[in-house]
Amino acid sequence: MHEGFLGVESARNDIVITVSYWKSLEAIKNWKQNLDHLDAQQLGVSKWYEKYTVRIALVEKEYSFEK
């Protein structure tokens, strides 16, 4: 994948939510400037998406439960 990329999760139902995890803000910035990624963004805007939102957030803590 790309340097600094840690993983991705996606959920699709009535809406699509994709969360990608990165090592640092610098890694995110580098990915945003990646030519393949820029091409994919343009394709998404022209073919698939009517709108999207990007949020950059810091995960302070994570825990989960599964039976």
Rank of each mutant, 00 (worst) to 15 (best):
A11K: 06
A40D: 04
G4Y: 00
A57S: 14
K61S: 10
M1A: 12
Q33M: 06
N34V: 04
E9S: 12
F5E: 01
L6E: 07
W22K: 05
K32Y: 05
E62H: 06
T18A: 08
Y52N: 05
G4N: 00
H2K: 09
S20V: 13
Q33D: 06
L38E: 08
A40R: 11
E60M: 12
Y63D: 04
S46N: 14
G44P: 04
D14F: 07
E60Q: 13
W22A: 04
Q42L: 14
Q41L: 14
L58E: 15
I15N: 05
I15M: 04
K29V: 03
W48K: 15
E66A: 06
M1R: 08
T18R: 08
S64T: 05
R12W: 08
A57I: 11
A57F: 04
V54D: 05
W22I: 08
Y52P: 02
Q42H: 11
V45W: 09
K29E: 12
H2G: 00
E26G: 06
S10K: 13
V19F: 01
V54M: 10
Y21M: 10
S64H: 03
I17Y: 02
D36I: 06
A40Q: 07
L25I: 13
R55F: 11
K23R: 15
I28K: 00
D39R: 12
V16T: 15
N13M: 07
L38Y: 00
W22V: 09
F5D: 01
A11T: 10
I56N: 07
H37N: 07
L25K: 15
V59N: 08
Y52G: 06
E26P: 02
A27M: 02
A57L: 14
K67W: 00
V19K: 08
K32D: 09
N30R: 08
Y21C: 10
A40S: 10
R12H: 12
A11V: 12
K51D: 13
E66Q: 07
A57Y: 01
E62V: 11
S10P: 00
N13V: 12
N34R: 09
S24M: 02
